[in-house]
């Protein structure tokens, strides 16, 4: 009896917190059929938002993949002073509010900050344009690849790398032919997480982008702007599109996880 009681409590909680709200959005989006959904997702503003979002996400995934693997190798394979500090700092972005991330970047890279002003004199605008948005997204996604790769690197040990090295392999060659294949699933997992997070980032991007319509508007900003302007159809349609991406991410992650267990 107690078993059924617990099960009911858990499921009812999830139903009202998760299933009903998400289900309702899907239902409302397609209330008038699929045509208005497609129409509101193919307006120039919506298409532009898709483009900006894709640019930011792809650049972020590239930057964080390179940095993530580099940092993970550094943390696992090398002994140096300040390793524990670096290890803790990597997690910091997860605990920092996205708005604070935005503010922090504005204070350094904004036009009226010394460093940002110097960059602006060189003709590089960071805040209120794409570089700032990429920086903000890199910041909030920073730990994802590192934390996905680190445990696998620890587990595979260094025997194979040492073997490659004794056979005369160069460091880069060893990395590419030995280390990389061993961590590829974990790396893919981290990259998918980064991609999903980058596509959905709102707070940090809202601060640094200046929210200029048709210029620096990402999908999440588009949802908010459309909603505030009482264009529910477009807001719901874009939200639905992002929910689909979220579900696809979940499916990919579930597919990637068992692969790791098999190792």
């Amino acid at each position: 009896m107690a078993r059924y009681g617990l099960r009911t409590v858990a499921l009812v909680y999830l139903l009202f917190l998760l299933v009903l709200p998400v289900g309702l959005i899907c239902w409302t989006t397609f209330q008038d059929g699929i045509a208005p959904v497609i129409e509101s997702l193919t307006t120039p503003s919506a298409l532009h938002a898709f483009k900006v979002t894709a640019q930011v996400a792809v650049l972020t995934v590239i930057a964080n993949t390179v940095f993530g693997v580099g940092t993970a190798v550094l943390l696992v394979r090398h002994e140096f002073r300040g390793r524990r500090v670096l290890n803790m700092l990597v997690d910091l972005p997860l605990a920092v509010s996205p708005v604070v991330v935005g503010l922090a970047l504005v204070l350094v890279y904004g036009r009226f900050a010394p460093f940002g002003g110097w960059l602006a004199d060189l003709g590089i605008d960071v805040i209120f344009s794409l570089p700032g948005m990429v920086l903000a997204t890199i910041f909030v996604c920073l730990p994802l690849v590192v934390r996905a790769v680190t445990p696998v690197l620890e587990e595979i040990g260094i025997e194979q790398e040492q073997a490659a090295w004794t056979l005369g392999s160069k460091p880069w060659q060893t990395f590419r032919r030995v280390t990389l294949p061993a961590i590829r699933w974990a790396l893919a997992y981290g990259m998918v997480l980064t991609l999903a997070r980058a596509l959905g980032e709102y707070g940090a991007v809202a601060v640094v982008s200046g929210r200029i319509k048709d210029q620096t508007q990402t999908l999440t900003l588009f949802v908010e702007e459309r909603f505030q302007n009482f264009d529910q159809q477009a807001a719901y349609a874009a939200a639905f599109a992002m929910a689909v991406i979220a579900v696809l991410t979940l499916l990919t992650i579930t597919l990637l996880r068992p692969r790791e267990d098999e190792r």
């Binding site: 999830l14 998760l18 299933v19 709200p21 998400v22 309702l24 959005i25 999903a196 596509l199 959905g200 980032e201 709102y202 707070g203 999908l219 999440t220 949802v223 908010e224 909603f227 807001a235 719901y236 939200a239 992002m242 929910a243 979220a246 579900v247 991410t249 979940l250 992650i253």
Partner: peptide
């Protein structure tokens, strides 16, 4: 479903 809130953008969560 448990992981959905992590995957869903926060603004979409608010809207939902």
């Amino acid at each position: 479903l448990i992981d959905l809130p992590f995957a869903l953008p926060t603004i979409v969560a608010g809207l939902v």
